[in-house]
Design a protein around this nucleic acid. Structure first.
Lengths: 105, 105
DNA sequence: ACGTTATATAACAATTAGGTTATACAGGAA
DNA sequence: TTCCTGTATAACCTAATTGTTATATAACGT
């Protein structure tokens, strides 16, 4: 159970097509930040800021590996269930934009 | 199944505490617009615009009765299920702000 | 017709959101 | 060290959001 205040905060973060698509991709597994940069038609700093908003909402966890940072859904977030329920209602995106650098390992 | 685009649009509309609370109240049944005016600490035009956004998102239906307009959740919206699922996760609000005019009939 | 009530719209101000470019920082490789 | 790559932050711009007050519209009551 959540208050309308806290739930609306999370929904606001989810209410952006870029962020929602990022989450959808992470549902399939951990994603390197650079793969988002390749995937979306916006600048690297814009991607970085979207990731920051998702992190600050507690929806993401990160793992650093060398210079790459891999993000994944935070399964311990109190909103994880809600997020996954929503993501499962989104058509799978044909990701033709895999990270083309080493990080894809 | 929805696209990330269309779902994010709806989530953006839901991502506001006033609108989310309004929806929560409508989940309990039809609400007169004037009851929202009494209930929230914002001006009548602000309420009116929030209702318009919910209407434009297809989430509400309205019924005019004399000079009062009663709003209710649109059960035929393609997003109705999602909306109800989310509303059910919100703590019930102690509505000490019923419409104090005749419309409450 | 006239006043009153309920709701919607217009015009405006302040804040937030989301993009950009430039720059800083972190880590690996030569 | 120096250079390169990946990521984050700063500064800025524009557009959207959310509130306000003033006004218009719709419907009722006298």
């Amino acid at each position: 159970m959540y208050t309308a205040e806290e739930l609306s905060k999370v929904l606001k973060v989810l209410g952006d097509p870029t962020r929602l698509t990022m989450l959808k991709q992470m549902e399939a597994g951990e994603q390197c930040a650079c793969s988002f940069v390749d995937c979306f038609d916006i600048s690297q700093p814009a991607i970085s800021r979207h990731l920051k908003m998702l992190r600050q909402a507690g929806l993401l966890l990160e793992r650093r590996d060398k210079q790459w940072i891999h993000y994944r859904l935070n399964e311990t977030s109190p909103f994880y269930g809600i997020v996954v329920d929503l993501l499962d209602k989104i058509e799978t995106i044909d990701v033709s934009c895999d990270c083309d650098t080493e990080c894809a390992i």
